[in-house]
Design a protein around this nucleic acid. Sequence first.
DNA 1: AATACTTTATTTATATTTTTATAAACTTTA
DNA 2: TAAAGTTTATAAAAATATAAATAAAGTATT
Lengths: 408, 408
Amino acid sequence: MEPENKGIKGSQLKNMIIKRLYFNKAMSCAGLSDLFDKSIPSIAKAVNELMHEGFVVEHGYAPSSGGRRPLMYSVKANAMYILAVALDQLTARIQLFDLQNSPVADMLTFELKLLNNANALTILTNQINSYIKDSGIAKGKIAGIGIGMPGFINVTEGINYTYLDANGSLTAYLTEHTGITTYIDNDSSLIALAEQKFGIAKAQTEVMVINLGWGIGLGMIVNGKLFRGHTGFAGELSHIPLSEDGSLCECGKRGCLEAEASMLVVAQKAIEGIKQGRITSLKHNTNDHSKLMGDALLDAANNGDQFAIELLSDAGYKIGKALAILIHIMNPATIVLSGRGAKVAKILMAPIQQALHKYCIPRLSKGTELLVSELGFDAELIGAAVLVMENFDKSVKAKVSKATKTIA
Amino acid sequence: MEPENKGIKGSQLKNMIIKRLYFNKAMSCAGLSDLFDKSIPSIAKAVNELMHEGFVVEHGYAPSSGGRRPLMYSVKANAMYILAVALDQLTARIQLFDLQNSPVADMLTFELKLLNNANALTILTNQINSYIKDSGIAKGKIAGIGIGMPGFINVTEGINYTYLDANGSLTAYLTEHTGITTYIDNDSSLIALAEQKFGIAKAQTEVMVINLGWGIGLGMIVNGKLFRGHTGFAGELSHIPLSEDGSLCECGKRGCLEAEASMLVVAQKAIEGIKQGRITSLKHNTNDHSKLMGDALLDAANNGDQFAIELLSDAGYKIGKALAILIHIMNPATIVLSGRGAKVAKILMAPIQQALHKYCIPRLSKGTELLVSELGFDAELIGAAVLVMENFDKSVKAKVSKATKTIA
DNA sequence: AATACTTTATTTATATTTTTATAAACTTTA
DNA sequence: TAAAGTTTATAAAAATATAAATAAAGTATT
């Protein structure tokens, strides 16, 4: 075997330490020893090597807990970088982060229609490559590319069955055409990941994150890890049968949550209401599409427009009924309202709670805390970065970097 | 430190091997090496020690897969025993198994009313102790006691908040008063465990098991492990809001699945039907309680009684609607119909499938297989035994046994 | 039938990891 | 304020696990 391969097993622990320090800010050798169930000398050796290799720096002494103060270590922010990409049906965002999740280049936003757009993948690839070039960061310094996007995604194969057809594995295509290991996942899943690692649900192990967008998504954290189900379609909250009647959904059924309470549907109801002469501060030009109205509606509600609030309350109550079902089945510690609609979460809160009181056994609703995202619109980008680091201990990145380091 | 403690870490691997061989029948050193990510010499050493200690025996050669045939090892059936206990509200079952899940003593069944019965715990403890004594098996040879029971259970503390108040930890009480480490869990959870380890859902990682009994329970296997939720109440399928109206449930709400489709409710509907003169082979004496009627109804349905089948079909459709919701959220590989009602599962199957077609997105229902338990009424007892062995690698049992062995 | 290739098992030498002992730095108790 | 107890860190010795080499027992190929 080549000498390069000899170190894989040994560098495994080092990758695990880097990953942990990315998530945990700072830790002591003793803490890492407990966490990984390895002896302190083993940890100390790995940490010292990582310091010489430039991945880890000392981070001062933590307060004593009754004995000698532990020397803390943290990851060196500029040792590596992470490229995060967030896509929705119309828009793409690209942002480069360092290992402390600080942006190291301006965010790039551009229009990218995913549906029926054969050029979308080429455009995205070019934009990523030129963004990296403009940033001045060497590709070898980028730990990976994480991409969040709508659609039905096979994470292990790296395929999105709905958008961005790469004639096989999308991640393989992007890895090849950028030279950087790429990971993809569902947008709602990444938002959940962000909330659990760096957001309002930090360190919780049972978290349900509602992605209130044009649709209604659900990201599930079970046992501290993203849960995707057997074929990757878990969390289809938006199409459970909520009521027998109700308007017809895109999926062909009646009574779906998405057909009753998504921001898009609420916007359409607003347009109808205006046509029927409802008193509201909202205006509607016939050539506006629903998404523009949606954004306007959220702002109007926050500014106290009664009609907008009424529409949102109605949606909130239905969302609450769905959450009651979710609580009964999953018994989560936390439900987080996140995504685009998070900015009207305070208005939604009251009707949601009302529905929970009506439809939940108290013993169950008592065990779940309902929270509003603080990451807001950044959640998906941060989740995309987290996705890269979640896979870091399985990749051989650190080994490669180390190899170049030791030669240099 | 005492010399006894020195071996704990080393015997960890041996306990893991015993546990694996309990679940897997027979494995080779190479297979165990792959599984535990340990070198073959390490595994071989541990296996040889376990053979000398009497826990493991050779199990012949497996067919070649293109090279030297592997020598298989299996656990020695009579090296240890497991005591399984299954309780419902009225009846207790006790059964002693060997390490191949074969009964080594006759099953003991006795009446044990759990509700408002201050003596229940004492009676159970005495029955367990005398059962073991009668079996002639030394207590030191029993790896543990596993108990499945209804109620709201804190597994880690070993407390059942509903029944068998032990003024603290029920498992601690029983461990002390029997001298054998005791574990408890919810009946539906144990049925799920049994189905996943030794039943129709063997080796599946995403399994939902419906416990069709007097109530409707749900045992969830997520990521290959029992899922209990944040406060242990996950899987409350029976009280999700299914319909706006519907009969009033014990829980105080309307439209609960349990109030519409549990075997107890179906039996009550049968009694009402008979009173109203419905044509049926079923008879009803006014002093019969619903549970007797329930058993009779299941048999009548299996014998072709139209009225019984009609009632069950009605229940099946409602169960199907609930399963549709479950599939949307969990996207399981398998749903198993188990418990007392499993014997009419074939009758339930058609209306359940019908409801799934109506309420499920095809993409989701396609990914889930609906199966009927083959373990039937034995599932809970086997699950109780599995519970003991699931905890085996965390216990120090094997070390103790080994110690006594090496002295002898 | 002979050769090449696989997979499994065993032995030995090497590498790694953990224990143990010692020291350092700090808190708590007497 | 001194003594005792904690927690963390480091350096040596001891234990342990692994990799490499070799052997054994089979299948597949020519």
